[in-house]
Computed example of a mutant assay.
Amino acid sequence: MTKIAFIVGEPSGDRIGADLILHLRAALGDDLDVFGLGGEEMARQGLVSLFDIEELSIIGVSAIVARLPQLVRRVSQTAKAVIDAAPDALVVIDSPTFSHRIARRLRAARPDIPIVNYIPPTVWAWREERAAKMRAYVDQAICTFPFEPEVYARLDGPPATYVGHPILSEPHLKPLLNRSLAGKTASASPRLLILPGSRRSEIDRLLADFGKTYERLCRTMPGLGATIPTLARHRARIETGIADWPVKPKVVTGEDEKWAAFANADAALAASGTVSLELALAGVPMVLAYKLDPIGYRLRHLMTAWTAALPNFIVGHPLVPEHFHEVVRPELLARRLERLLTDTIERRAQLQGFQDIREKMAIDRPPGEAAAEIVLSVLKRG
């Protein structure tokens, strides 16, 4: 029996972990035993989680500080469970604030157990020194962005391999990837996507400014429609937040509705994050904005990257505009979006860049299949 421990701290990692288990089981069959931390998707693949990972789904330095005692207890509990179980390998997925503490404790107690990090820390964005430190307790990194292996090699990190981003396996995205971006023109009655974030704190910090931006656009572009795709648990919050908007966007939940909105959109105003990659691959020109929590804002000097936008990292130049804190100004955001909602040089430049992103991220097999092969090779090496 091959026993593999998993440490996953949030829903996005849960989906990736479930996909990895699915492909590992395809190779190992009933000779696979999984345990550790995971969510609902991994539970469907047979993992019984040590506790509800919703406890770890936090963002921002302020939130981490507020819940530090709880996190410390969970680190000790989880590390002890993994060490006592003596697995054949440990796979940690994202959430480095939590998962890497488990990895370091396991390496200290059982240096013979190999450790794989699927979605390693974003050392290309901040705290580059983490890459070299990881060599002591990570045997292999599995990356979801094509530029990451070179970054980890340059920073003397653990061996790293690009397998493709999980979004490339999203069935709703595939029809959009097949649509040519060459000559894609704006609609006569343009549609705007408004994406204020996937967490409550992000929505609270951005929704009002996004509303003022949309109000200004509606004055200069009569007939402009807008859609806000969001998670079901945030729908009431969004609807309360837009109650006093002069023109109400349509609020949708569910994957089918989200991707239908992406397919019909001419441009997007979005919180900087993974959604920017989804928009790029779907061919939706965008303007990005973000506001950190108060403590994170005070620590912003720790950010060493030249950009926070994933599309910009992938193509290597400032393709999509970014706006942070004091520069999140509705008048500025609206003027940028006007240039993307009509056929301009800015719109064409983004679409050309999105085509480059598609080519750089192209893969010839599902990411989970390639990741499973890497985990199995690490197991064979011991």
Rank of each mutant, 00 (worst) to 15 (best):
Q140V: 01
S276E: 06
E10P: 04
V138G: 00
G197W: 01
S57E: 14
R219L: 14
R15E: 09
I4S: 13
R74V: 00
T97N: 14
L173M: 03
A226Y: 02
A103M: 06
P96I: 01
A136T: 08
A153K: 09
V61E: 07
A232R: 07
Y118A: 01
H301L: 08
W245C: 01
F324E: 05
A182R: 13
K291C: 10
R335T: 14
P69C: 12
L47C: 07
L376Q: 13
A370M: 13
Y297E: 13
A18R: 02
L332R: 11
T274S: 14
G211E: 05
M1A: 11
I53F: 13
L341E: 05
H325M: 12
A243W: 09
A160Q: 05
Q350L: 01
R339N: 14
V287A: 15
A131V: 12
N117H: 15
D33G: 13
I21V: 12
R233E: 09
Y152N: 04
V82I: 15
D256C: 05
A349F: 11
Y214K: 00
L181H: 07
R105K: 15
L379H: 07
I242C: 06
L32A: 02
R191C: 06
K80H: 15
G36F: 03
A268R: 02
E346N: 06
S187I: 10
V287N: 11
V91C: 05
Q77K: 15
A132W: 05
G13A: 06
F313H: 15
M286R: 01
K3M: 13
L192F: 05
V315C: 05
M221R: 12
G211I: 00
N178Q: 15
P367G: 03
D293P: 04
G29W: 00
L379Y: 13
H100V: 00
T253L: 10
L181F: 10
P321S: 04
I21G: 07
I64W: 12
I93C: 00
S276A: 15
C143V: 14
L32E: 08
E255F: 07
A371F: 02
K174G: 13
R347S: 06
D14H: 11
A280K: 00
G39W: 08
L217W: 04
A85G: 11
